[in-house]
Amino acid sequence: MSLVQVENLSVCYGARTVLSRVSLRVEPGEIVTIVGPNGSGKTSLLRAIIGAVTPVKGRVIQGDGVKIGYVPQKLHVDGTLPITVSRFLKLPGGVAVADIDHALKQAGVPDLAKAQLSQLSGGQFQRVLLARALIGKPDLLLLDEATQGLDQRGSASFYQQIETVRQDTGCAVLMISHELHVVMSASDRVICLNGHVCCEGTPAVVASAPEYRALFGTGTGGALALYRHEHDHDHGHGDHNHDHSEAAE
């Protein structure tokens, strides 16, 4: 059973069509990445999946009992709003303290519970958002350009955390990313979006597809090389050396 299935989805903002007849599905445990140029409807697609956008056509089918954790694009918290990380994670209610601590540990920031949200660094903030998404023990994580505004080191370390979370919890990941190197190395499947699904498949297939090259040029050959390298490793042990894990911490 697919965790989530998008069927023939079309989304319009006023007269402007941002998505037309998009179909995709996410299976348990896989990492699927959506790539596409600015304005290609990537964010609208994720927003349609969480119910923030009502499609004009098509539908989103969520598997029975499937729980979704959502990590939004960079979130701005107004400095006038005093709120601690743990209070933020409790919203909208009914979360036990032990679950909060566990989620913060999973997201790699175990010591931040008492920190003020408005004083976190960009990297810490993204991890707190990840912790928030993990609290409900999701079967599917949705990440919308979760590393926007982070430097290369920060984003590499963030993606490594996602990989760790996937290994620990077995949840599937559907993410938007513009960092093609990371995308190509970490994904099981890539969907190239530009208002419609241009092409999809394994990173190797997508990277060599003419539609993908038309959008991103041929300068991403390095990504493919990295991808091959990355898949040499074995998922059974935790201390293999990703290129990006060396850069982090």
Partner: peptide
């Protein structure tokens, strides 16, 4: 209160929480 606070922080987070 909680629903208002969640939607004040971020509308998409609110939608994702069913608010």
């Amino acid at each position: 209160w909680s629903a208002l606070l969640t939607s004040t922080l971020n509308e998409d987070l609110a939608y994702a929480s069913g608010i």
